[in-house]
Simulated assay, not measured.
Amino acid sequence: MTDSSSSFQPPSVHARAVDSGRRRLLLTLAAAPFAGAVSMMPRRALAAASSSVIEGRNLWLYPGWESLTDDATADCLKAIDLIHQTTDKLAARGIRSVIVVAPLKGRACAENLPAGVALSDGVTKRFAAMRAQAASLNLALVDSVAAIAGVDASQEKYIRADYHWSGHSAEAVASRVAKRLAGMGPLKGSAGSGTRLGKWNEEVRYGDLAALLPPDKKQAVGKDHFIVRSAGASPGLVDGGAPVVQVVGNSMVQPYLGFPQKLSNAIDRPVGLTWTFGDTGPWKTLLNYLESPAYKANPPQAIVWQFNEGQMMNLPSAAGQWDATSVMSEDAFLARVTKATA
């Protein structure tokens, strides 16, 4: 299973992607794998990405394609409604669902945004609006903002010159998910089958945003210190039988940052993982799993479905935002979910 991690570049304080094709490219970069993906990008792609980075205080970088000012709350609430329709279909097959939305880096780490740059009032209130809508539908959407805010002040919440949340934030959100799952009732399987966590290690290298900068800017931004776990079990999928819980998402939940391992450790059950490139999108990623032989052979007891806040406004039919093979009408998406879970 492959994904890509995020990428930017910082020419001005608030540059933005201006057309849908370029935005789709940036979403792809925002999901590129940490190791070596950047070097495989064509030069034209690198040039496009370099015009959509926000240079913040203290050499922090932010993704310019995730707008800090465009509200889009109404479209995000439509996405919540579609997620609810999907989880109802899963529930009809005995599958529980927990939803995770990775907040904007500019929301979680606002203190390092450039002087004079801030979330608009609409964007500031958007996450709470999504949670309220989910609560009204009895949809289990965890408060990832609160989980990340609770990370120890000595640790980064997002990686300074990278698109992704830190390993500590990934684990904090995974712990919140585990509590939500526990509140839904006993999990199947046997205690003792969860992942054993390794020790925290420090790896020094360029963040995915810095890696797309021109050489002089890249050097000025410098390398990041990635604080991640050493492997405690096979990465991303626990040894110990069929997954009781399946995580479906993008590069925020990739094994490198430790989300699935921490979740498995916290629930003490095997956890499976399906993650894809950012421009595949969460809708098609879920279908990739539900239409797979792995799902057919061993349906999980629960699915943890992960989204990025900066893409929440994009439904399955959002042409130009997702890869062409991932674009479909909302009705077509629901029909495929129904067929896959029949």
Rank of each mutant, 00 (worst) to 15 (best):
I303Y: 01
Q301N: 12
L273N: 07
T274E: 05
V304N: 06
S292E: 05
N298S: 14
R269G: 04
T280N: 12
A294M: 11
F307W: 14
Q311H: 05
L290N: 15
P270I: 03
P300C: 09
N298M: 13
P299E: 14
T285K: 06
L290D: 12
E291W: 12
T276Q: 09
T276E: 09
Q306V: 08
P299G: 06
W305G: 01
D279R: 13
T274D: 02
W283K: 09
T276C: 07
N308Q: 07
L273K: 11
N288S: 06
L273Y: 03
T276S: 11
E309P: 00
F277V: 06
T276R: 09
A294Q: 13
A302K: 04
T276F: 01
V304K: 05
N265W: 00
P293R: 15
Y289P: 15
T274Q: 12
F307A: 01
R269W: 01
L287V: 02
L273D: 03
Y289H: 10
P293I: 08
K296L: 06
P282L: 01
Y295P: 04
W305S: 03
P293N: 10
E291M: 15
K296R: 14
T285D: 03
Y289E: 05
Y295I: 10
T280E: 14
G281D: 05
V304G: 08
Q311C: 15
N298T: 13
L286T: 04
K284V: 00
